[in-house]
Design a protein around this nucleic acid. Structure first.
Lengths: 235, 235
DNA sequence: ACTTTACAATGATTTCAATCATATAAAAAT
DNA sequence: ATTTTTATATGATTGAAATCATTGTAAAGT
């Protein structure tokens, strides 16, 4: 039996490369279709909050989301970004703990919720999905460890160059060739792990060095190779 | 058929709480016994090297091991510590990449090697082990993210207090009540993400504040609550 | 259009921690 | 035992980046 309402956005999701749910069987896909619950979130809204117990996982259909931890004086450290096709909230669900971070919407988003029961049912019956999840977690862990080392050893300037390259890679470019995301200087600072003023200064430096262009809020990478050199990435 | 040589150390390993291999069936345990390969490593020896392709996972029977990444000027960033019962090298093996870190022996160790084929065979046929591995990876990821935020937001002093509490928790205490590990100031610095001199100074400060005692190379935590307060941990 | 609010840009100052420099103590090697 | 090496300790100096302070600019609300 088909679900009452088809959701073409979710079909899109499944077809996207890299989403763990590609491992689902046809039967599981239709089960997910009937169990999932899609919602629309506006910019600034919270999808889940640090400290809350997860009730399932989220799959992003559309929009841009940041996952961050809040430090002592309310300063955010952005741990990860998510866009269409990305899955959210699996780490806490799997380890059975409260969320260790908060997910907030940066650009209006459509997000599907898959209940815990359904997700674990899939995990237990589908070895491919388990493998996918392990690989996803392994990838996340590698990323986190690399950032950890960078944060401990690299100066802000290098980390900033690295972050810009990451943002370019992650969001791609719009028709003007700028990074396809409207992201505040404060958010960039909270990715890099620095102060907002420092971010503004370094971006301004990079502009002066013709590495980037600042078009309104948007950032255009002019000299990709130059940024790589600045980031001290040689591999 | 029983393996030619029993290894009581491995039995010990399996009985230890927290080891993912607890999920193995009796048949798998004996398969592992016949496939595994135990070696003795001396202090300073390398178990695996950043950049090399993993051929299996390692299980520590005895000894103390550090996993670190090497930064630009050869500075180590310690990502994780391992002691008896801990498993090593699964992250890279699962994601099918080269090791992102180096494992070096801090105190003489006995380590078993389980070949890739055997490990993946277990993973594919034992759902419990898959679950265990997912939980282990999730835990590692949580740790790494928490450290990331700390590194970005907390001053060295707080991170140092946190690191001492972690070392105490991880290694426990010896008969004198000191942290049960001989760990150099440089290694502590490479855990905290600071300079060796800064580590020495802060440890000396902590001693002055009666938070810790320095008995030779060993560190004894005198005022646990004080360290928690210094680390700004309130949960 | 105007007011309010939020974000970006820049300058001035301070501070935390790295680096440089040297001394002392403990291991390791001869 | 004595030299060499390695680790710890402490002082002096520098420097990168945070913080404080102010102005400019764009966006949102009235």
């Amino acid at each position: 039996m088909k679900p009452q309402f088809e959701n073409p956005v979710c079909d899109e999701c499944r077809s996207r490369l890299g989403n763990v749910f590609c491992a689902l069987t046809t039967a599981q896909v239709s089960e997910m279709d009937s169990e999932k619950n899609c919602s629309i979130y506006k910019k600034g809204q919270i999808i889940f909050n640090e400290g809350n117990k997860p009730a399932g996982v989220y799959c992003v259909n559309k929009g841009k989301i940041k996952i961050y931890q809040t430090g002592e004086e309310g300063k955010e450290q952005i741990l990860r970004l998510a866009k269409e096709g990305d899955v959210l909230g699996y780490r806490s669900l799997i380890s059975g703990e409260a969320y260790s971070g908060t997910a907030a919407v940066m650009e209006d988003a459509t997000v599907c919720f898959i209940p815990k029961r359904t997700f674990f049912d899939f995990l237990h019956t589908n070895a491919d999905l388990s493998t996918q999840m392990m690989q996803l977690l392994s990838h996340d862990l590698k990323e986190a460890e690399a950032r950890l080392t960078g944060l401990a050893q690299k100066p802000v300037r290098e980390r900033m160059a690295e972050a810009l390259l990451m943002l370019l890679e992650f969001y791609g470019t719009d028709k003007e060739g700028a990074i396809n995301a409207v992201i505040s200087r404060e958010d960039i600072a909270n990715i890099v792990g620095t102060a907002t003023e420092t971010t503004i200064r370094i971006l301004s430096d990079f502009k002066g060095e013709k590495l980037i262009d600042l078009i309104g809020k948007k950032i255009k990478v002019n000299n990709h190779q130059g940024l790589i050199k600045t980031a001290h990435i040689y591999d």
